[in-house]
Design a protein around this nucleic acid. Structure first.
Length: 281
DNA sequence: ATCCGGACCTGGTCGC
DNA sequence: TGCGACCAGGTCCGGA
C-alpha cells in the first residue's frame, strides 16, 4: 500500500499519541510477519518511553529512550489503528479484521495502538541503541530533502540500462517512491517510463526532481492516497487518489492541457506503469 | 555488477 | 450465488 506520503500521514497521525508517552503494555500476537518478530520485542517495549516518532523512506521509527528504536514497515496492507477510551472519536472500520491485529501497544494514557496487516508483508523489528538497521543502511536520499538533487539523481542513473520507471522504484537510488508516485512524477515530467535511466538528459532530471517533490508534497497534504487499504492513523481516508493524472486511469484522456493523448497501461518488471505515449517522450 | 522474475500472503473484484 | 483467475500501494533473493 503505502508509499512515502501514506507512511508520513500515518506517522503524523500517531505522533500525538506516541511521542513522549510510555508504552505500558505490549502484545505480540504471532511470532512472525514477513520475518520473525524479535523474541524480546515485548520485553523491550514494555515500560519504554517514546522520545520521537520519525520516518525514513517507507519506514516508521519510534525512538525509545535508552532502548534504541522500534522499526515498522507497513508492507502492502499494513495499517496502524488508534483506539482511545474516548469512544466515538475513533471508530474501527468493521472491514479491518481483528485476526490481522499482530502487534498491540497500550500507552500510559490508555490509547491502544494496533499494527494490523492482512497480507503480512510488513515488518516489525528493534534497532539497538546507536546501531543502523541493515534495511536502512543502503537507502538513497529522502526525496524531500536537500540531498535529492538533479546532480545526485544523474549520478545514480549514470550508466544504468534499466528503465527509468524501475530505477525510481529502486530504494537505493531514491527512498520512498512506489508504483503510484513514480507513474505520476514521470507523467508530470513528460518522461516515458520505458526510457533507460542512463539516457535521461540533464534538463529532464531537473524537471523530474521538481515533480517528484511536488507530487509527494501534494499527496502528503491530501493525507495520502486511499485505494484499498490505506487509512490515516485516525481512520480517515486520504484523498490524493482523486488527483491522480495517470495511475489506474487506463483509457482516460491525458490530463495535460492540449495533449489529446490517452493513458496507457503497460507492465514493467511485473508491475503496472501508466503513462501517456503522446506527451511522455 | 546489473537486471529480472519469483516468492512471500490475503482479500477484493471480475467474468463465467 | 458460487467459484476460479487475476490483481494489488513492497522488497528480498537467486539466477541469468
Amino acid at each position: 500500500m503505502p508509499e512515502l506520503p501514506e507512511v508520513e500521514t500515518v506517522r503524523r497521525g500517531l505522533q500525538p499519541y506516541l511521542e513522549g508517552r510510555v508504552i505500558a503494555r505490549a502484545e505480540a500476537r504471532r511470532p512472525d510477519l514477513r520475518w520473525p518478530l524479535p523474541p524480546d520485542l515485548v520485553q523491550v517495549l514494555t515500560g519504554a518511553r517514546v522520545t520521537r516518532l520519525l520516518r525514513r523512506s517507507k519506514y516508521i521509527l519510534a525512538e525509545l529512550e535508552d532502548r534504541g528504536s522500534l522499526l515498522l514497515h507497513l508492507g502492502m496492507s499494513g495499517r496502524m489503528l488508534i483506539e482511545g477510551e474516548t469512544q466515538g472519536e475513533f471508530h474501527r472500520d468493521p472491514a479491518i479484521l481483528p485476526r490481522h491485529d499482530h502487534v498491540v501497544l497500550w500507552t500510559d494514557q490508555g490509547t491502544r495502538i494496533t499494527f494490523n496487516d492482512a497480507r503480512r508483508f510488513g515488518m516489525v523489528d528493534l534497532v539497538a541503541p546507536g546501531a543502523t538497521h541493515p534495511l536502512l543502511a543502503h537507502l538513497g536520499p529522502e526525496p524531500l530533502s536537500e540531498a535529492f538533487t538533479p546532480e545526485a539523481l544523474g549520478r545514480a542513473f549514470a550508466g544504468r540500462r534499466m528503465p527509468v520507471k524501475a530505477a525510481l522504484l529502486d530504494q537505493r537510488i531514491v527512498a520512498g517512491l512506489g508504483n503510484i508516485y513514480v507513474s505520476e512524477a514521470l507523467h508530470r515530467a513528460g518522461i516515458d517510463p520505458r526510457r533507460l535511466a542512463g539516457a535521461v538528459a540533464a534538463p529532464e532530471l531537473v524537471a523530474l526532481v521538481g515533480h517528484v517533490r511536488a507530487v509527494l508534497e501534494e499527496a502528503i497534504a491530501a493525507g495520502g492516497s486511499s485505494l484499498r487499504d490505506h487509512r490515516q492513523a485516525t481512520g480517515e481516508l486520504g484523498y490524493f487518489q482523486h488527483a491522480f493524472r495517470v495511475y489506474d486511469r487506463e483509457g482516460a484522456p491525458c490530463p495535460r492541457p492540449g495533449c489529446g493523448g490517452t493513458v496507457q497501461r503497460i507492465v514493467q518488471s511485473g508491475r503496472s506503469s501508466y503513462f501517456c505515449p503522446l506527451c511522455q517522450g
